[in-house]
C-alpha cells in the first residue's frame, strides 16, 4: 500500500448528549487516496453520525479519528474545508443564487480574509463545473435546476474546494435512474482518475455493491461487517440488518440484493 492514508477511524464511539446508548459504537474504517467506500445501513443506524465524527464536528467518546494523520477534532473548519469536501444530506437556499456563484463558495476556505477572488479560484470553479458536466448550467439560477443537476452542482462545489476526501451523504435520494447512475459514475471516476478518497453514504445497496471497493454495514451504531461487497452483503447480514427477507443474485461478480415479497416469493 503506497497510496496515502486519508481517513483513519479506529474503534470510534459517540453518544449524543442525554442519549441512553451510543449512536456509534466501536466502528473502524480506513480510507486511502483513490478508494471508494460506501456506508450502508437502515435509517438511524449511525451513518451521518459517522461523518460527523470523522470530520470532527462532534467530539469522540472513545477511539481515534484521524484525517491525514491529524486528529479530526484538531482541524479548524477552514483548514478542514481545504482537505475535505462534503455534500451534506440537506441544505437550504435562503437567497437566490446562480450556479457559478454557489460553486465559488467552495473557494472560500482558500481565500484570505480581505482578499479578492483570484484567477486561480475562477479556474478551479471552471474545472469543477466541467468535471461534473454542469459547465453549461453556470449562469442558471439554482432553483431552475432539476434534482440531478442540482446534486452535480453541489459535488462541483465540493470539488472546487480541491479536497483529498469527498464525502457524499445520500446524494441520490429521490433521483431517477439516469441521474443516480451519473452521480455514482462521477464519484467512481473521481476516485479512479483524480485519486480522491470517496466516502459515500447511501441506501442503494445494489449500486453500492457495484461501484464501491469496500462497504461498511452499520446497524444501531455498530459495524455488522466491513469489507468487499461480496463478503459483507450476504443474505444473512442483509436480512438481519434490514429485517426483511432477501435473496442475493450475483451480477458481474457483485452481489445484488433482491427483497422478497412476504408470501408469494417464498414458495
Amino acid at each position: 500500500m503506497d497510496r496515502a492514508l486519508i481517513l483513519d477511524l479506529r474503534g470510534v464511539s459517540y453518544r449524543y448528549p442525554g442519549a441512553a446508548a451510543d449512536a456509534l459504537h466501536d466502528v473502524s474504517l480506513a480510507l486511502r487516496a483513490g478508494d471508494f467506500h460506501a456506508v450502508l445501513g437502515p435509517n438511524g443506524s449511525g451513518k451521518t453520525t459517522l461523518v460527523r465524527v470523522a470530520l470532527g464536528v462532534v467530539p469522540l467518546r472513545e477511539g481515534v479519528a484521524e484525517l491525514l494523520g491529524r486528529p479530526a477534532g484538531r482541524w479548524s473548519p477552514r483548514e478542514l474545508a481545504r482537505v475535505a469536501g462534503v455534500v451534506a444530506q440537506r441544505e437550504d437556499n435562503l437567497f437566490p443564487q446562480r450556479v457559478r456563484d454557489t460553486v465559488l463558495l467552495g473557494r472560500y476556505p482558500h481565500l484570505s480574509l480581505w482578499g479578492a477572488v483570484r484567477p486561480e479560484d475562477r479556474a478551479a470553479v471552471t474545472r469543477a463545473l466541467e468535471r461534473c458536466d454542469v459547465a453549461t448550467l453556470a449562469d442558471r439560477w439554482i432553483w431552475t435546476l432539476s434534482g440531478g443537476e442540482y446534486q452535480r452542482v453541489r459535488v462541483a462545489r465540493a470539488l472546487a474546494q480541491e479536497p483529498r476526501l469527498l464525502v457524499l451523504d445520500e446524494p441520490t435520494a429521490s433521483l431517477d435512474i439516469r441521474h443516480e447512475m451519473e452521480l455514482f459514475e462521477l464519484a467512481r471516476g473521481l476516485a479512479d482518475a483524480e485519486g480522491l478518497a470517496v466516502l459515500l453514504i447511501t441506501h442503494h445497496l445494489n449500486l453500492a455493491a457495484r461501484f464501491a471497493d469496500r462497504v461498511l454495514l452499520l446497524s444501531e451504531g455498530r459495524a455488522v461487517a466491513e469489507g468487499p461487497p461480496a463478503e459483507v452483503l450476504t443474505r444473512e447480514a442483509a436480512e438481519r440488518v434490514f429485517e426483511w427477507p432477501v435473496t442475493i443474485e450475483p451480477f458481474q461478480d457483485r452481489p445484488q440484493i433482491i427483497p422478497l415479497r412476504k408470501r408469494k416469493d417464498h414458495a
Binding site: 473548519p77 477552514r78 481545504r82 469536501g85 441544505e91 472560500y108 476556505p109
Partner: peptide
C-alpha cells in the same frame, strides 16, 4: 452544517 463544511 453545510456552512461549517465550507470552512465557516
Amino acid at each position: 452544517e453545510p456552512a461549517r463544511f465550507l470552512g465557516a
